[in-house]
Design a binder for these strands. Structure first.
Lengths: 110, 110
DNA sequence: CCCATCCGTTAGCTATTACTAACCGTAAGC
DNA sequence: GCTTACGGTTAGTAATAGCTAACGGATGGG
C-alpha cells in the first residue's frame, strides 16, 4: 500500500452492512456458518432475497462460501471486516482530538 | 444497556458512510473542521446537497456542529465512530476463528 | 436414468435515495 | 433598518436498491 487511498479500498462493506436485513444475515452467519436455506427460514424474506444479500456480502469480502456437496455453507470472511476496522481507526484519533479541542474551547468560554 | 443489542443501536453510521460523496464529506471534516460552504467548494455537488449529507452524518452521530456566529463549523463526533468500531469488534474474533477452522479443514483434505 | 433437493439468476415492480432549483430564516456590517 | 453572506428546508425528478415470482443449473439418491 503506497498511499492513504489504499485503506479506502474495499469499503463496499459499509453499503453491505447499511441494510438491516443484510445485517441480520451477517450476524446469523457470525453466530454459526449456515447454508442459504437455513438462513431464509428465520428471516421473513424469501430465499432468493437472502441469496442476493449473500452475493453483496460476498462481493464486499464480509462472507465466504464453502461448497459441501450440494450445500453451500457461508461463513465470515475477515478481509472485509478488517478493511472497515482500519478505515474507522484512521479517523478515531482525529475524532477524539477534535472532540477534545471543542471541550477545551467551551471551558474557556464558561 | 443490558444486552448485546445495545451495541447494535446507532448503526445508521453504516448507511451514512455507504455513500461515496458522504464519505468524502466525512474525510474532509476529519482532515480539518470546516463550515458547509467550504466543503461544497471542493465537492462537485451543490451546497444544499452537502447540507443534506451533513444532516445524515449528524443523525448518525458521526459529526457535530459548533455555531460560531453565522458560521456553522462541523467536526467529527466520536460517538458514531465508536459504535461502529464496537460492532465490528464483536465479529472480529468470530471471523478469525471461522477462517481458521476452514484453513484446518482444508489442511486435512489435502 | 430419473427424480428430488439445493441454490443462483433474471424480469419486473415498488420504494427509497441523491440531486438540483427555489425558498425562508438568521446573524453581522454599513 | 436595510443589505449581504451563510445555511437549513422543501418540492420535484432521475437513478438505485430490495423484494417476489418464475426459471435454469448442478449434485445425490433411488
Amino acid at each position: 500500500m503506497a498511499n492513504s487511498r489504499a485503506a479506502s479500498r474495499n469499503l463496499d462493506g459499509f453499503a453491505a452492512l447499511s441494510d438491516p436485513t443484510r445485517r441480520l444475515v451477517f450476524e446469523r452467519i457470525a453466530r454459526r456458518p449456515q447454508p442459504v436455506g437455513r438462513l431464509a427460514e428465520g428471516l421473513a424474506v424469501t430465499r432468493p432475497a437472502v441469496s442476493q444479500h449473500l452475493k453483496v456480502l460476498k462481493d464486499a469480502g464480509l462472507v465466504a462460501v464453502e461448497a459441501r456437496g450440494t450445500l453451500r455453507v457461508y461463513r465470515l470472511d475477515p478481509k472485509g471486516v478488517e478493511a472497515m476496522k482500519n478505515y474507522l481507526d484512521r479517523f478515531w484519533d482525529e475524532a477524539l482530538s477534535a472532540f477534545k479541542e471543542v471541550a477545551e474551547a467551551e471551558e474557556n468560554e464558561a
